[in-house]
Design a protein around this nucleic acid. Structure first.
Length: 115
RNA sequence: AAAGUAAGUCGUCUUAUCGCUACUUUGAGGGGUAACCCGAUGAAGUUGAGGAAAGUCCGAACAGUGCAGAGCAUCAUGCUACCUAACGGGUAGGGGAUAAUCGAGCGAUUGAUUAUCUACAGCCAGUGCCACAGAAAAUAUACCGCCUUCGGGUAAGGGUGAAAAGGUAGGGUAAGAGCCUACCGCUUGUUUGGUAACAAACGAGGCAUGGUAAACCUCAUGAACUGAAAGACCAAAUAAACCGACGAAAGCAAUCUCCGGAUUGUUUAAAAGGCUGCUCGUCUGAGUCGGAGGGUAGGUUGAUAGAAAUAAUAGGUGACUAUUAUUCCAGAUAAAUGAUAAGACUUUAAUACUUAUUCUCGGGAUAAUUAUUAAAGACAGAAUUCGGCUUACAGGCUUACUUCUUCU
RNA sequence: GACCACGUAGUUCAACGGAUAGAAUAGAAGUUUCCUAAACUUUAGAUCCGGGUUCGAUUCCCGGCGAGGUCA
């Protein structure tokens, strides 16, 4: 499997995102490994679709949010062969400080292993 | 040479591997009669954040709505000239305030230099406010005082206060007072200089006008409103339904007719609505307004060749402008510029070596050079686009000024 | 992206340009009680920050900072 991350691997549909964050939907499952929280559900499509989110409440500056999102994206790109089935996944950063790349990669790896 | 201040300017770099955005070229194969289309999480190449991209404080472009027009309201600005597409921005100039230094005069006051600041139209159009203190805070009906012919006259003195009815000196007077004189200040007229703000000179007025307009307000100038979630096109979806309130008048003509009427057209009237917030006025006119609810919520465009950038020359004190040449320099949309490794550069700290200075000469302290190790490299991320302003910012460079030290 | 309002004691709110910035609660100390509660007495507490206008600013003006809200 090639280590690419193109447009069709990203989760863009507003409807699916809405259903993913609907608290009443029992199909969603959650996984946690510091500093990342994962909300996901299984999909019928051939590719797994992913979104990354960093809360504005914790990180005020857009430059910080961009940095964290890019590190998470990189970690997912290099480790996504760990996944067997296809999912809709949202990665949410819950750390209070900006962690370096090693810590974020460890968290993403653990999440993907649990799935 | 160092430090500080001000202005301007730059604001990390190189290589490798993996990956992202856009564009160009290519195309295993598939579809189609053909033109051509699709196209491998294909391949190759080029390209990809800022001086503030930020705050959203001003001004425009652009777009929509509206536009017979008039008035009012509302908002903004406010010394002068210029720059500019425009501006509440900038440049140059004028006036003013504060502080320091050096002067002139008995004094009131005032001249020069330097630095900093300056929302700097109008309280002789009107209205309001001016706590406490003080006799009095603006129409001085005078509290004490002074004088008196006992009717009154009088603002010279009265500790206050941010502010007290022009000031200083002299004359004058019953006591006083611009009542009079000189000087200073103020107001005002003329002339001269300057594009103008304004300045200077020569008169005139006895001074009438306390402060406050970042108080209401007046005057002048400007502004129609909304804001890319604007707007245009394509696709998809559906509901001309439901509930409540208000309204649906009359004439003529044509058609249909079960002769009761119904439909359509037209004229007048009218609920209501449009025309920015209001009024006048004006237009449309059989539906209008409100509630609750349903559906859709994808794509293309707007949207990146411009009041563009760079360089040279010319004009201007300057902001800036003109001409010529060259260049094409992000275009994402749940939102592209990243990760890892190695190296360079800069800064800081520690250790070691060497040199210099100094001392209580055991050694220590300070400064500089070199080497090694470690840490750090700011503020901050395009979202339609420009011109400004404001704010954040490690460090480097250039220019000017000031201060002190060393050397010549 | 565009736009709109707000900031006062620990908390919820007041306050014409005139000051010792007020009230209710919460806090602290004391009185009362065998102890606690209630009650009473006392006390310490704040104008988001920096400039300006004014004799004087929580209030007026400008700039920042913070925390909110609206839109198809």
């Amino acid at each position: 499997m090639k280590k690419t991350f193109k447009k069709n691997e990203r989760l863009c549909s507003l409807k699916i995102i809405g259903s993913l964050f609907d608290r009443n939907n029992s199909a969603n499952e959650g996984v946690f490994a510091y500093p990342v929280r994962v909300v996901c559900k299984s999909s019928e499509e051939t590719h797994t679709q992913v979104l990354f989110s960093v809360p504005k409440r914790q990180f005020k500056h857009a430059a910080d949010r961009n940095l964290i999102r890019r590190r998470m994206k990189e970690a997912y790109r290099l480790n996504k062969e760990l996944l067997k089935n296809s999912y809709y996944i949202s990665f949410i950063y819950v750390g209070k400080v900006i962690e370096n790349y090693v810590v974020i990669e460890k968290g993403i790896k653990n999440c993907l292993k649990k799935l």
